[in-house]
Design a protein around this nucleic acid. Sequence first.
DNA 1: CTGAAAGCGCTTACAG
DNA 2: CTGAAAGCGCTTACAG
Lengths: 343, 343
Amino acid sequence: MNKLKATSFDIAYRAGVSQSTVSRALRNSPQVNEETRKRIQAIAKELNYKVDKNASNLRTRHSGTIALLLFEELDDTESHINPFYLSMLGSITRTCSKEGYDLLVSFQQFSDDWSADYADTNKADGLILLGYGDYLDYEGKLNELVEQGTKFVRWGAVVEGEPWLSIGCDNKNGGYLITRHLLSLGRRTIAFIGGADNHSPELYERYKGYCKAIEEAGYYVDLGLQFDAVTTEIDGAKALERLLASEKKFDAIVCASDLIAIGVIGALQEKGFQVPEDIAVVGFDDLTVARYSKPALTTVQQNTNLAGQMLVYNLLKQIDEAEVETRHIPAKLIVRESCGSKL
Amino acid sequence: MNKLKATSFDIAYRAGVSQSTVSRALRNSPQVNEETRKRIQAIAKELNYKVDKNASNLRTRHSGTIALLLFEELDDTESHINPFYLSMLGSITRTCSKEGYDLLVSFQQFSDDWSADYADTNKADGLILLGYGDYLDYEGKLNELVEQGTKFVRWGAVVEGEPWLSIGCDNKNGGYLITRHLLSLGRRTIAFIGGADNHSPELYERYKGYCKAIEEAGYYVDLGLQFDAVTTEIDGAKALERLLASEKKFDAIVCASDLIAIGVIGALQEKGFQVPEDIAVVGFDDLTVARYSKPALTTVQQNTNLAGQMLVYNLLKQIDEAEVETRHIPAKLIVRESCGSKL
DNA sequence: CTGAAAGCGCTTACAG
DNA sequence: CTGAAAGCGCTTACAG
């Protein structure tokens, strides 16, 4: 059953035409006779012939393929990928296939020398970058990509004046909306758990929105109520310990992500606090678990479907050297139970 | 910044050797002088030279790439992929990269003519197949793949005598374990929600395990207590309606998947039933949500990490024409709240 | 240890 | 509308 694959020469021989004509016919070139084309295509089908992509890609100098690089901070095999990126993957994959592109997926340890292998080796025409560890390190790598002329688009905070294309949620507005919601519910001393500096620009933006809402309501932002955490349950729980140890008073917590919020709620409940009665807790991302957590999480939704599409379309524009623009995805407040709305 | 990419000829020119020698040096051929090799590699690095994969793949006749095809039944863009497959994706991706293979990911509508494009066009050396609609239709496509000599491995029920390689969980044992657990808790009239015929062999196996446990305990299996459902929340809720409408008595439900169980529990609670006090409900898969659902789901865990590895390793063996064997992943009972253990 | 040469299977000017 | 030919950038016998 391991018969050799047919080539365009085989088709040409059977059709009694030249190999060039076969190539044209198969690509539906308008300059080939209707009848001839049909005959050739019929023979191709019969022989189960498919154009060899390696050969055509080599010739045309592009691959019709996009590479998706997912960065993970964790060093180990068991690590779970952030479900947020996973849900984006769905829409990226679908958009690619709609546009006739194939998608290579790869997880990268942040420490890897990932430069741009897929692009450099001509396996992919461009890259989509999701996730990263410390932004300040990451920036350097991004600059290398730009220098090498690699086409790419990344998901993350949209910063003015960057020499690359970023697509991101309107994080600041999201942080603003959800904090304002808490304020409207009568909460007055609101803590923030999540990084709030340039090491994690997305979370920082959310923090800025939080600050804006508080100031707008006529209060002062207490810097002592912000505690760093990366986006994991464990880090959320740890940050809560520090919040508690600080002996500050607070009646609500804005968490910079759902994962953090879930860790915080678990730790809070363990200590005997009622959420949201004693402390309201809200998240960011609207992961699937937000709906199922107990209490169900009030959070900010980022439209991952739209996000995936924009990443792909903008990358393709870039590949085609077309106009491209840095863009925000809207942030949408999703009210459930953990904020205390139903109290 | 759009300088042409360097080729092996450029390197050869600078190193003062032939292009063949460059090619050998870069592939660490032992038959090239140590010093020459180092010099060549240094120049290659300096020029940021990377071997063109299209050219080398064309020459060597293999791509170092595997394609993962994820089948979806739903026809629409918004559809969520079964999270079970998503978690498998993580381990597949990691295993591939550990083995030096790239991974193409693609969602396929079941109706597509997916035959084996990736393999036929030489973009991939083999395929991994996850998910499917109706197994009986699917079988035909699998046979086509075999006929065309395409290398592939699939996740699913392991059936004796199939002409292809399947890796699957020990579904029957899983169904057995969880039903026996319910029995040991004193539940006597246990319904089963999920397909129980050859259209969905995996669920059918789980049903067989359920039957075995019941019979082993000395009871009769009531065929009227089995209700079809595909693996979605909605279908679970609908099947529950039918169960209720049948006016049969029951004190527990074995659901063929977590998604079904979550739909069932939601519908049950809506009607005023207490889970697990009135009715115990258990699932299968151990999705992330199983931990967060309310009550937390007792279920059967399939080791997706191991599953992904086995899929990749077995496919690679097949590509290398090595011995390969159909294999089961063990099923593990995970006891949480929904079975009523803690009552 | 090294080089000249063939060839992997296409696409696409060029000429007719 | 069609064909002969060049060439994409490699790898690998073959010869030395």
